[in-house]
């Protein structure tokens, strides 16, 4: 599904076609995979519009168009727009942004995501970090206030906050009274829990796509049924978060949030299903996938419980993306028929 491999031999004699493996075609090519993920994301787009209204849809539109524009700008005439990857990156980036974000910032994020995160490395299949998260982290570093200003859910659909059309690079921010705290920062700074049903339904403050837990789970099950990603990664993330935060909860129930809240709040579900599973930036070997997922889970719990930030899913995934080549190296499966390490004599 990456762009590596598949070279038909040019110098071969006529009638003989030389191809390198793999020879079994599964029918799953890049556009199909991307389309599946986009289908799984559509309910989230609808939910974002339902909960956060027109400004949210504008942010999504800007991020998506911005990503495709960047891809087109640097890759004109190569047809890479048609593989849907830029569209998907833009969509995922948009879904990780707060609803009332100024549109020009969403555009900058899209430029950073596709330009720095993907095209600088040679395009689809070569990026070392998840492009959408590169864009998100770039924005978080550049505009920390705007990226942590949360508009409450359930406002009138056509009510556009002043910040949406804020002019670029000017700091005249109209005072916006309509801000609130996400469930995670409420937990971190005020020790107030949010009930599970609103976390599942999505009527809480947060990034566009991360609030409706139920829809993310359904999308994840759809993708798992389509075999669009390695299910080991989300399972490892959820298990490790549940285990580690469960241990902390048992040690101090009044100090730490319960595991169910940790699993269903913030961007954890969204990150586990749509971002950590990116086949390019995660290890391919089964053992590596477990290590990768567990590492993300541990880092998320560490950053959420002990860090200065209420949410750490983005950084956890980026850090494990960085460690992914090393994990890949230590998790290579043993080829069939080859002796285990340290037992070399048995084979020879």
């Amino acid at each position: 599904m990456s762009a590596k491999g598949h070279d038909s031999g040019d110098a071969a004699p006529k009638g003989l076609v030389l191809r390198s493996g793999p020879h079994l075609a599964s029918g799953m090519d890049t556009p199909t995979l991307m389309r599946d993920v986009i289908i799984a994301l559509l309910p989230l787009v609808v939910a974002a519009g339902y909960h956060f209204g027109a400004p949210a849809l504008l942010v999504l539109l800007t991020a998506t168009v911005g990503s495709m524009l960047t891809e087109w700008l640097f890759r004109r005439g190569e047809g890479t727009l048609l593989d849907f990857s830029a569209l998907l990156t833009g969509l995922i980036l948009g879904l990780t942004l707060p609803p009332a974000l100024p549109l020009w910032m969403a555009l900058v994020g899209a430029l950073a995501a596709v330009g720095l995160g993907k095209l600088a490395f040679g395009g689809l299949g070569f990026n070392l970090f998840n492009p959408a998260l590169v864009g998100r982290a770039f924005l978080q570093a550049a505009f920390p206030t705007a990226l942590t200003t949360w508009r409450p859910a359930g406002r009138p659909f056509f009510e556009i906050p002043a910040s949406t059309f804020a002019p670029p690079l000017l700091s005249v921010r109209a005072p916006d009274a309509l801000t609130t705290a996400t469930p995670l920062s409420r937990m971190k700074f005020d020790h107030k829990a949010t009930d599970l049903s609103s976390l599942m339904w999505g009527s809480v403050a947060g990034s566009l796509g991360e609030t409706s837990g139920l829809l993310i789970i359904i999308g994840g099950l759809f993708l798992a049924a389509r075999r669009a990603f390695d299910v080991r990664i989300p399972i490892a993330i959820l298990l490790s978060v549940a285990a580690l935060s469960g241990a902390f909860y048992l040690a101090g129930p009044d100090k730490y949030p319960d595991p169910l809240f940790m699993l269903s709040s913030g961007g954890l579900l969204f990150g586990a299903v749509y971002m950590a599973t990116d086949p390019v930036t995660s290890p391919l070997a089964p053992r590596g996938a477990w290590i990768f997922g567990a590492g993300i889970g541990v880092l998320v719990v560490l950053i959420r419980l002990f860090g200065g930030l209420p949410e750490g899913v983005m950084y956890a995934i980026l850090l494990m993306n960085a460690a992914s080549p090393l994990i890949e190296r230590v998790s290579q499966p043993r080829p069939f028929g080859r002796a285990r390490e340290g037992k070399k004599d048995a084979a020879s």
Partner: peptide, 30 residues
């Protein structure tokens, strides 16, 4: 990777280092 010729080498390394540093910002205040 098929890195564009103009970025190959030091420029790409600087970009990687920058992204790595961006990821490490998550540890702020730990």
């Amino acid at each position: 990777a098929k890195v564009p010729a103009i970025i190959r080498g030091t420029a790409l390394n600087l970009i990687i280092a920058g992204l790595l540093s961006l990821a490490f910002m998550g540890f702020a205040g730990l």
